[in-house]
Design a protein around this nucleic acid. Sequence first.
DNA 1: ACCGACCAACCGACCGTTCGGTCGGAAGAA
DNA 2: TTCTTCCGACCGAACGGTCGGTTGGTCGGT
Lengths: 216, 216
Amino acid sequence: MVSAQVRRGGNEQTGRPGSSRRPREGHVAGYSARSLVEVAAEVFNERGYDATSMEDLSAAAGISKSSFYHHVSGKEALLRGALERAVDGLFGVLSESPAQRGSPLARLRYIVRRQVEVLATELPFVTLLLRLRGNTETERWALERRRVFDQEITAIVREAMDTGEIDDGLEPARAARLLSGTVNSLIDWYRPDRVPLPELVADVERFVFEGLRSTR
Amino acid sequence: MVSAQVRRGGNEQTGRPGSSRRPREGHVAGYSARSLVEVAAEVFNERGYDATSMEDLSAAAGISKSSFYHHVSGKEALLRGALERAVDGLFGVLSESPAQRGSPLARLRYIVRRQVEVLATELPFVTLLLRLRGNTETERWALERRRVFDQEITAIVREAMDTGEIDDGLEPARAARLLSGTVNSLIDWYRPDRVPLPELVADVERFVFEGLRSTR
DNA sequence: ACCGACCAACCGACCGTTCGGTCGGAAGAA
DNA sequence: TTCTTCCGACCGAACGGTCGGTTGGTCGGT
């Protein structure tokens, strides 16, 4: 397990510590394992996990590869850390009280809205989660968690169909997959600071529940 | 350049030629470059492009790594071949006459339906296309073609909003992205033979244009 | 004296790719 | 028919290079 404690969460000048050559400001940088997970998640998304070397990661963190190993136990541990953050964010939504009380449709709408918010705020981590191939044990664990999450959504969709709140012309599982697919596709184009988050949330909710066709 | 001519497009007993140990039936197998592209696309999707070794590919084709090189010029050429097939399929839809004539909404509906069909029939190739990271020149070329495709969709969405056929509450570019995102998300769960294609096409069209909410 | 941050040099494994050579059928000459 | 020549399919072995990870050590603060 990674044991380093938090000392400095980042670097104020670039947002990512020492991504360009630092002039060796002593030997005190102090990267927490957590901030390195953030760096790693970004690089994983740019290059792809397999194409990312430990040297790429350490360079992005501004230290040498061997120094990097002083802070983290290995490549897969970084992936695990990032995936855990994504999974925790997603399941956190399900455990919020508006996701557990109220009519099925209201719960579903709430989950969609919150899921968009989590996707946006935890973008690099969720992106990583949604692009997994399942090659390692860590990846398969995350894939399984995703599957459980999707099942929860499917169950709520089914309830909402039973109450007649949403159209029951589709199979619940298929409707849930289209729903999740739409929300998750945000990671392919959403970039923070380009679109106000509340506006994005409203647009996605409208698209998912009302569709594209004119209401007039 | 790949120079082998088509001799046998596949193998009737497994659907993929020689994926299990063949008892050396002479030295006549005769893989066309095309059938090897199909094998490669499947393995790329299972393992991820970067994580796939040439040995993985040759093993899937049932020949040695060095024999494999007798038929193809290299790893990236296989990727290129697969991506070209996906891109051609997608742009082919746009050039069909129902995609160019009629009201914007009718054209959009047609494109969505046909795009689902292309996704389904060319699943491995389109999957590859939609998961690119842009590390190599080939990948960047494909990404650029995708961008052009999305722009075409955006233009039609904008037209349909101008005519009032679809809701203009969303920005055209954002509506187009949600639309494409929904359709493209099929690659994450659609598997042939599980769902009749016409039914899938109808479901996706309905979801995209009518949304989930009840029509009653 | 000790400790945490840091790094150059290194390791075995595996990568994509090349190459020399074998095998068996097709084709032409006898 | 038999002999000879040729060719495409095929493979084992090895190449240069890069990978994830380790080692042995320096340096500055306390």
